[in-house]
Design a protein around this nucleic acid. Structure first.
Length: 438
RNA sequence: GCGGAUGUGGUGAAGUGGUUAACACAGCGGGUUGUGGUCCCGUCAUUCGAGGGUUCGAUCCCCUUCGUCCGCCCCA
């Protein structure tokens, strides 16, 4: 093999595409009901859209596909996430000036991160996500979570868990970060290398260290909730009350801090506890961001959003034995018996297609047997058999697979006969209506 | 970025330093010159991820490289 797709990327082949199409259809239906509008932003942005001065996350600092064209001084980056691009767009198009805020947006698209691939982690992967920007109301935190939760529930996923926490506002978080630094100050040198790094970059992440998890110093570490100011505390309580009211189960996890630097207040992570998930169990996750709109030059408006890894969602579905979408079938297969009748058969095929019947035929002059196997593989409901006799008489032989009924009809009467035949059976009829309505 | 496993036809897989690379499924052809799903027969990898090296000779030994899988890290 001389050419292969780059590491961590994959082709989604026709045999699997129905899953993706079904998933995307469902996503659009859900967002339609919640009155969220789709937004499509560029697949690359100016690097500084993602790389913002204070950002210490690995995603931004180590995993971005950043490039610069030879005769240009502009640095561009393939998007590793959508939130930054969406907020940039929100500000650039002054959506904050539109009536009926908040802007309720959703997207589906591929993201690029230069990570080491493993189960549930690829270099190009698909995310479905929502962003609600312009109004700060705990009910919107609840609404976004509810949208995602009802979506995964509608798919039939049961092994799901909502973990939630609050980081408070900037003031609360700064005070907490300082408290953590002081707490670990004397012991940090004896802790693991990762923790020493986190101590500098993001002390909050020390708390979910797996290596040093059992140290006494961990257990005695200060808790976020003790550093929340009144406003932050009330906000979080209102979010939880909303979730209670909707009957969405959750666990408060005060070690949940999230990796992206822009989060404030609510942060959450919805994980699958299914065995098949491997090490990457987070299906969708997100939080509120108070400072981003302003960062991009807009007014001081808050937003909330989450992103869902669609490959991970499919793994979770597979783990729970959920199949998405149905096998495609064919209305008619046109079986041609000789090279001499090929054009006649092709004409019949074209007539059926023009009438809205999903039709395919043979292009290889294969044997009767081989063609009939195609009929089965493709799940055709009706097979048209065309040989020299039919052609000479301007007819076709039409066989309905359901009851093996076969008749010879004039080519001119083919479509009428098909319509009658399909109308007899309710499922077939339904199928026909669907086709006709296109 | 670190660690471990792995790579033979469309698929699932045997295999050995020595000339024709098992077997099964799928495909295709035929038995049944025009009615399938069963059965029978035939056919189907100058080639063992790629590139180099050792050797009289390498799919099997060595090196490099690429991909895949799993874990760490990180994240969706």
């Amino acid at each position: 093999m001389s050419y292969q797709a780059p590491r961590g990327t994959q082709d989604i082949l026709p045999k699997d595409i129905y899953q993706w199409q079904t998933l995307e259809d469902m996503i659009r239906q859900f967002c339609y009901i919640y009155d969220y509008k789709e937004i499509r932003t560029p697949i690359f942005e100016h690097t500084n859209v993602f790389k913002r001065g204070n950002d210490a996350s690995d995603m931004v600092n180590k995993e971005m596909y950043t490039f610069q064209l030879e005769n240009s001084s502009t640095s561009l980056t393939l998007r590793p996430e959508m939130t930054a691009g969406v907020v940039r767009s929100f500000v650039e198009h002054k959506m904050y000036g539109e009536p009926d805020l908040p802007a309720k947006l959703y997207y589906v698209g591929e993201m690029c991160r230069h990570e080491r691939p493993q189960k549930g982690r690829q270099r190009i992967f698909h995310q479905f996500g929502v962003e609600v920007i312009g109004v700060k109301n705990p009910l919107l935190d609840v609404e976004t979570i509810a949208l995602g939760w009802s979506f995964v529930s509608a798919l039939g996923l049961k092994d799901m868990k909502v973990l939630i926490n609050t980081l408070g506002d900037d003031e609360s978080r700064d005070r907490y970060r300082e408290a953590l630094r002081q707490h670990f100050q004397n012991d940090i040198d004896s802790m693991c290398a990762d923790c020493r790094r986190r101590y500098e970059q993001n002390p909050l992440r020390i708390l979910d260290c797996k290596v040093d998890h059992d140290l006494a110093i961990m257990k005695s570490a200060p808790r976020m909730k003790d550093y929340l100011n009144e406003e932050s505390k009330v906000y979080f309580e209102q979010v939880l009350q909303g979730l209670d009211a909707l009957g969405i189960p959750y666990e408060i996890d005060d070690r949940l801090v999230r990796g992206l630097d822009y989060y404030t207040h609510t942060v959450f992570e919805v994980i699958s506890i299914n065995q098949e998930m491997g090490a990457q169990a987070t299906v969708f996750a997100g939080g509120r961001y108070d400072g981003l709109v302003e960062y991009f030059g807009g007014p001081q408006l808050s937003g909330i959003g989450w992103a869902m890894g669609l490959e991970r969602l499919l793994i979770a579905c597979e783990g729970e034995g959920i199949t998405i979408g149905e096998r495609e079938t064919l209305d008619v297969y046109v079986l041609n018996l000789s090279a001499e009748t090929a054009l006649y058969a092709f004409t019949a095929t074209t007539m059926l297609r023009a009438a809205g019947y999903k039709t395919d035929c043979d292009y290889q002059n294969r044997s009767f047997k081989a063609q009939f196997k195609s009929v089965e593989r493709k799940g055709a409901k009706v097979v048209l058999i065309i040989g020299e006799t039919e052609m000479e008489n301007g007819q076709v032989s039409m066989k309905r697979l359901r009851d093996q009924r076969q008749e010879v009809v004039a080519l001119d009467a083919l479509i009428d006969t098909m319509d009658d035949m399909f109308a007899e059976h309710e499922d077939d009829h339904h199928h026909l209506e669907e086709k006709r309505s296109i």
